[in-house]
Design a protein around this nucleic acid. Structure first.
Lengths: 338, 338
DNA sequence: CTGTTAGCGCCTTCAA
DNA sequence: TTGAAGGCGCTAACAG
């Protein structure tokens, strides 16, 4: 029952040559209608299946796409991947997923593996400061597309959200509700564009509303609940305590809220808190958390489409790379006043 | 800069033959130390990289493993995949992920694609009632391993948790805390083993404590927050209202709690609620949700190990398939009394 | 120890 | 319209 039927088997049975079988199977026009039908019938009957490995070797195209994310078990990345998959599966691609765990070395290794596997393209939300590994991808002439976390590189398409706008709208939302002493938690490596931009949006919003930027109101942490608690400890040991917190991560926002409540500080009445990413749990809580939606599913679909477009459009000529920027959306919930 | 160096290029440069190069590269003992060193040096210098596609075609082994899950963007499956990946990447495998969306047809299509891609094995948390597609995998002599949601098939290893025990301990926990009118929500297709088993555990616990099984206390839903709310609507329109709910899904448990609270029913004082899966959000809530932990990371790692073992152990002879059953753990939180 | 040959399964010129 | 031949890159069997 093991399926090892090749075009040679079909050819033999039909007393023709493998080349003809190949032609029939691939819709090559230089073949008589009759032979084509015969071949197709035989192929079906013999339960023939094209060996994609042979095809890949021959054509140099594997129909596999590599996707690298920091981690898979978060709603944001899970949804992006889902979007990519939906779009790409329909076109006959499979996706190979790698996790970098926010580690530059691991990411480099993932890239290595994917190149080795001859993927047709790599989509990445990069955790690297250096672009060395990424450059390798380009050197191999493998299309590279950034999503969410991009780096500045030539000839590389990207799909991101406008993190500056996200930071701005979060901060403005706090300001509009009357907050003036707004802290910001940079909940990830400041080297990454996304955090820089969110921070920049924060700064700009303050400036536009004539609020001084205070260095002691800006903290750097990792993205975890624990770190959110610690951040509050630090912020509330200051002489002048903040009346609002804009965290670049929902998890940190949650930790902050928990610590505030533990200290008997009322959210949002005394301190407003807003997060980033719209992870589902933010909506589950009794005190639901205001946040910024990044439309991950849409992002994933867009990444896939950008790739497909630039593949088919290549001959048209020239630079087809594209920088798509999606607009984030403020989701106002109970952890902030309105 | 495009890297197209083959063993022929190396051979040519060194005035030897490709076969010798291959031998040197693969640690074949039949070769002089001197040539080996020369080849290795040249390979490094020329930045040679083995073409895995050619290797795959030649050997019939792709070093890709297909993984099929209902959906990827849930903590449970995300973590399982993470566990699989950790273990398998280290051994040079890549994993290809497919989502079935709980749809039998989609799952069949995924299987088809993976077979076509010549994956070395398929790991699946199956959503199918029929085993037809799964049988195809076996017909192709591709190792198949179930995790979480298994089906009864010969020659197939599986890694699951003891869902019966999970259902039993959840129910017993409610009974121990004084509940007697315990409802059960089967939050998924009853055709799936996992739900049958959890239900059986529920029944057994009732029986062991001399509590009658009431059909009107057992509901079937999908796994969503909305369905949890609806379930409460139905249960609390009964004459004799339950004093506890055991849901086979955390999401449904959450919905149920929200609806109960909306109705002014105190959780856990008037009604206790326990879920299943230990999704992270269950611990984030102010009223944290009691649940059953399934150790997804461990499950993923185990699946990978079972595969690796049965691959290497094959020669040893005979049936190496294995049924691993992990023990779940009760996580008592605030949504139940203790 | 090394070279020659053949083949994994497919596609694609070049001839006929 | 079809056949013959060669090659994608690698490995393994058989000679020498």
């Amino acid at each position: 029952m093991n399926n090892k039927v090749t075009i040679y088997d079909i050819a033999e049975k039909l007393n023709i040559t493998a080349a003809t079988v190949s032609r029939a199977l691939n819709g090559n026009p230089n073949i008589s209608e009759k032979t084509r039908e015969t071949v197709l019938a035989a192929a079906k009957e013999m339960n023939y299946k094209q060996n994609k490995l042979a095809l890949a070797l021959k054509s140099g195209k594997s129909n596999h796409i590599g996707v690298i994310v920091p981690r898979i078990n978060t709603n944001f990345f899970g949804s992006v991947i889902r979007g990519i998959e939906e779009e790409l599966n329909a076109k006959g691609y499979n996706i190979i997923i790698c996790q970098s765990h926010n580690d530059e070395e691991m990411e480099a290794k993932n890239i290595e593996t994917l190149i080795d596997s001859h993927v047709d393209a790599i989509f990445i939300s990069s955790s690297s400061k250096s672009s060395a590994s990424l450059q390798k991808v380009l050197d191999e002439k493998i299309p590279l597309i950034f999503f969410d976390r991009r780096k500045i590189m030539n000839n590389v398409s990207s799909v991101t959200i406008d993190d500056f706008a996200g930071g701005y709208m979060a901060t403005k939302h706090l300001i509009d509700s009357g907050c003036r002493k707004i802290a910001h938690i940079i909940s990830g490596p400041i080297e990454l564009e996304i955090f820089k931009e969110r921070h920049r949006g924060y700064q700009q919003a303050l400036e536009d509303h004539n609020i001084d930027y205070r260095k002691d109101y800006v903290l750097r942490t990792n993205s975890s609940i624990e770190e959110g608690k610690r951040a509050v400890e630090i912020l509330f040991s200051l002489n002048e305590k903040p009346d609002a917190i804009f965290s670049a991560s929902d998890f940190v926002a949650l930790g902050a809220i928990q610590e505030l409540q533990k200290r008997g500080i009322k959210v949002p009445d005394e301190v407003s808190v807003i997060g980033f990413a719209n992870e589902p749990f933010t909506d589950f809580l009794e005190l639901s958390i205001s946040t910024i939606d990044q439309f991950p599913l849409e992002m994933g679909r867009t990444v896939a489409r950008v790739y497909l477009n630039q593949e088919t459009g290549d001959e048209a000529g020239g630079n087809v790379q594209k920088k798509v920027v999606l607009q984030p959306k403020l989701i106002a919930r109970k952890s902030t006043r309105n």
